[in-house]
Design a binder for these strands. Structure first.
Lengths: 346, 346
DNA sequence: CTGAAAGCGCTAACAA
DNA sequence: TTGTTAGCGCTTTCAG
């Protein structure tokens, strides 16, 4: 075993450069009050020693941690993976590192992860998972995040949360509306909706959009079957099986996110139901693979990567008195999974 | 602005509990040398104060950081997202937090990320990105990681690296061999290979497997067109276009990973080439969507999530004298994208 | 412009 | 069993 003293410390750099650690610190931090010559020399030495400041010591001494936290429901879900990619990219540009946690779509777990990130004194925390329609579920998270912000921490959320923080808001209602209007225009009237858990604001908002589009045509959400299952590929799969069995007359299926739609398509394929000839299918998100499915998936594009970038960018700005709110664009992407409603057999 | 003193400190807990900080520390750490009564009391107080230890202070004082680093090429790639999911899960179980960095398939960036993680004094570092066939490219990373390990840090890599560390090794050669043998058995002889950058060991190993399977049939890799492009969906897309144009007689395409295969399928669809009737396509990895593509993708399953779990588990074990090496299983999954070679037109 | 020294919050000897 | 105290490596006054 080698000696535990592995990484060079500031003291090593200072000694080697023949200056005090205070001067060394100033030089490396690029603070002023050091002659450029000395500063350059110190930097030179630091470089050749491969010196990297100990983040913990720096943090303890009052500096920033250069770390941001990101809470997602599940990183294996492409929606979150794409958001994470955006967050990581801008973090890297700014010399920050990203801690990622799973909330597993559970408010208790989310609270726990928030606590953990706070304990790590991350400079900022980004909550990317959907909010909950029931404020009580996030009351404690809210309190904890508030305290964190009062202490100088920065917070940004993605989606609609009952959290007082800067927010990046995909327009989920408009997305739900767009996809539904598209199907209605194609002549579909017997539409089934496969939704995620009703407590998620993302689900509630998209569903509200569906309802609004229906209302525009004098229809009501009460008239269409809505099934709440997991917000995952398997949830979509199970939901489609159930809906198909209970409502054999449906001509279109809306999955409230693309991964669910993927599950829906697999069921249709297994049952030999032609898409879109016999059944149209649409999702929301436009995850990367949506375009490469067969049939390619009609969906509403949400700029996930950009949302991640935006969230971190906002969080890194100096806090403003009132919370910032940034709504992202969305775009209906019509592909091959939707088509005209089949004319009913005479 | 509230006062900066937000989080309660150990001293606060100790004072409130009427004990010294040493006793408080012991109680919370669950170390022995404290009467159970006192310990329980301290824990109680800590709980009601919402006390969470400052990770940085703890680390600086010689404790563990409760943080592990994970370096992936790109988290948006489902292969890495699934690995990350596994890592995060076992980390959460053990009360650890995960810092994820992008290496962007660039050795320089990878080195930089390793340095960053070391600066953060993560307890362990997991390098999930592929290794490089050219040892020189990772020489410096190797040195830095070695120093990290000498200093008590733990390291695990996924894949074949020229890094002295515990390793989880998907059997890439066997995977390449399996998929190729499958195609050969189906009667294909004019097979094109769409590969990622040749410098990646993952690519080199899978390609070696392809060569081995060909050799088993008396064929040579020299006889089949191999195209090296990006190890991504778009790389697969571009590669397929090129290969198709240059070798119109091919009857099967092997993409060296599933995301490339997705790009390949999209090209075939665009050209109206029926899969598998006119062209068979196979990938490697079995990412989640592979089963849901149409046609569903024949591939070789690698247990990505489990690989992530395994890597962290290994890294968390006390270091052993000789490096551990764990080879994971793989399994040919035949789906709809491969079929018998079309009989040549007479 | 530069250096000395006081912490930051916690752990781990060492005492009592 | 419990308390005292010396750091961990760095930033930041405050002197010089």
């Amino acid at each position: 075993m080698a000696k535990p003293r592995s990484a060079p410390r500031l003291a090593d750099v200072a000694a080697r450069a023949g200056v005090s650690i205070a001067t060394a610190s100033r030089s490396l931090a690029g603070r002023e009050g050091v002659s450029e010559a000395v500063a350059a020399h110190v930097r030179e030495i630091a470089l050749q020693l491969g010196y990297v400041a100990n983040v913990h010591a720096r943090t303890l001494a009052g500096g920033a941690t250069s770390t941001v936290g990101l809470i997602v429901h599940e990183i294996g879900d492409p929606y979150f993976a794409e958001i994470a990619s955006g967050v990581i990219e801008v973090a890297a540009q700014r010399g920050l590192t990203v801690q990622i946690c799973h909330s597993a779509r559970d408010p208790r777990t989310e609270l726990h992860q928030i606590r953990t990130l706070i304990a790590h004194r991350t400079d900022a925390i980004i909550v990317a998972g959907s909010g909950y329609t029931e404020p009580a579920l996030q009351a404690e998270s809210n309190a904890v995040l508030q305290a964190f912000q009062d202490g100088g921490g920065r917070v940004a959320v993605i989606g609609r949360h009952f959290l007082a923080a800067d927010a990046v808001r995909p327009d989920n209602e408009a997305a739900g509306r767009a996809v539904t209007a598209h199907l209605l225009e194609l002549g579909h009237r017997r539409i089934g909706v496969i939704a995620g858990p009703a407590v998620l604001t993302t689900v509630a908002d998209r569903l509200a959009g569906v309802a609004a589009a229906l209302a525009d045509r004098g229809l009501s959400l009460a008239d269409v079957p809505v099934l709440h299952t997991d917000f995952t590929r398997n949830g979509g799969h199970a939901g489609a099986e159930k809906l198909l069995a209970e409502h054999p007359d449906l001509t279109a299926l809306i999955a409230l996110n693309d991964v669910m739609a993927i599950g829906v398509l697999s069921v249709l394929r297994a049952h030999g139901i032609a898409v879109p000839q016999q059944m149209s299918v649409a999702g929301v998100d436009d995850v990367a693979v949506a375009a490469d499915l067969a049939p390619s998936l009609t969906t509403v594009r949400l700029p996930m990567t950009e949302m991640g970038e935006l969230a971190l960018t906002m969080a890194l700005k100096p806090p403003s008195a009132r919370k910032r709110r940034k709504t992202t664009g969305h775009e209906l992407v019509v592909r091959d999974s939707t088509g005209p409603a089949p004319t009913p057999a005479p």
